[in-house]
Amino acid sequence: MRIGLGLPIADPTALLTWAQRADDGPFSTLGLLDRLVYDNPEPLVTLATLAGATRRIRVQTEVLLAPLRQTPLLAKQSATLAQLSGNRFTLGIGVGGREDDHAAAGADIRRRGRILDAQLEVMHRLWAGEPHSDEAGPIGPAVRPEVLFGGFVPAAIDRVGRWGDGFLAAGPLEHVETTFRLAEKSWQTYERPGKPRLVGQLNAAIGPDSVADEARSEMTEYYGNTNFANALVTTPDDLKAQLQRLEDLGADEAMLYCWSPDPDQVDRFADVTA
């Protein structure tokens, strides 16, 4: 099982240091979340910068809220990032559930699932080099990034087999097991060859209590409650145990999210996962 890092959003100026340390270490991927009405760096712009500052590590949105964006432009941006990064970009995609994000983007939150389905049909055609419509021709580059889906309900997870390459699971490990199995069922339903790529997320902060306290504070502010913060993994033994549990559930990759911007977490995670 590969190990990636979810990037902190509290201090965007620290992200180049995180990315370059991770690129020199054992990590496979850098992940970055997406919000609109929040003080976080825009993920596609940020990951393009980090891809240009690294040599081998992949960059991944976890997850990009597609209904907030204009579809042909999103197709072009994601294809461009895949092309210029040397195919190191993964488009983790979902719908989001916060009303303020959708209000600011002028998107109807009640139709967000249907909007995403329509976007996926258009983006896959554009990535294949097909014309946009009778009025507009192809929109390059004709490059298809890897596509992973995040979500919690069966309708969202069913997109894995229909449109994607794999699934991003967040939440308690018991929930991860359920969603992994649903993703595999979707893959079989659409008679896809092989199997979907399965990625699990863990929130962790290893080291001084001050780092864990900062991580919990950032998580509580972002999510608006303490549920995720209370599940923060703070010891090497607990982290090893949860990583083993994810691997036993069939995860191909685990993404470790530390909400504190302390770049020493990169080295502490490397020590634990070695």
Rank of each mutant, 00 (worst) to 15 (best):
D134L: 15
W187S: 02
L68P: 03
G166K: 04
G161H: 07
D165W: 05
C258K: 03
V37P: 01
T13Y: 02
P131D: 01
Y190L: 09
E221H: 13
A66K: 00
L65C: 06
D108A: 09
A48W: 05
D11G: 02
R192M: 11
D237N: 14
Q244V: 14
T178P: 04
D237I: 12
D11A: 10
T179A: 07
D158S: 09
R245N: 13
R111N: 15
H175W: 02
I93C: 01
N203P: 02
T178S: 13
A156S: 12
M1C: 00
G207A: 08
A48T: 15
D24S: 15
R2D: 11
R245W: 13
R55C: 11
L65F: 06
E42F: 07
T61A: 09
L246V: 12
I206N: 09
A48C: 08
I57C: 00
A270T: 04
H124F: 01
T234D: 11
A251L: 05
L239T: 10
P145S: 06
I206V: 13
Y257Q: 11
A183N: 12
G97C: 00
L15A: 09
L91W: 03
I115W: 06
T71N: 06
L126V: 10
D252Y: 08
F152A: 06
C258E: 02
A215Q: 04
E184N: 05
D39C: 03
V160D: 01
V63Q: 00
D237F: 10
L73P: 08
A170D: 07
A155V: 11
L148H: 11
A204Q: 10
H102G: 03
G25K: 07
V122W: 02
R111K: 15
R88Y: 07
G161T: 10
D213H: 14
I57T: 05
I109V: 15
N203T: 13
P43D: 03
A14R: 09
L44A: 08
S78A: 15
G224F: 01
E99C: 08
V45K: 09
D23I: 06
A103I: 15
E121K: 12
D100F: 06
D238T: 13
E191F: 04
P193N: 02
Q60M: 13
I157S: 01
D271H: 14
L81T: 12
D213L: 13
L5R: 06
T178L: 13
V160H: 02
T179P: 00
V63P: 04
A204W: 07
Q20S: 13
E99M: 14
C258R: 02
P12H: 01
L5F: 07
T49F: 11
F228N: 08
F228S: 07
A229M: 03
A229H: 05
A169C: 11
N87K: 10
F269E: 01
A170H: 05
T178D: 14
Y223Q: 00
Q60L: 13
W18M: 01
P172N: 01
T90S: 08
A155E: 07
D213V: 12
A136D: 14
D248S: 15
N87F: 13
I9Q: 12
A204E: 05
P8A: 03
L126Y: 10
A66L: 01
A183R: 09
R56F: 02
G86D: 01
D100N: 14
T61W: 09
G106N: 07
R21W: 05
R114G: 15
M123G: 00
D100S: 15
E121Q: 13
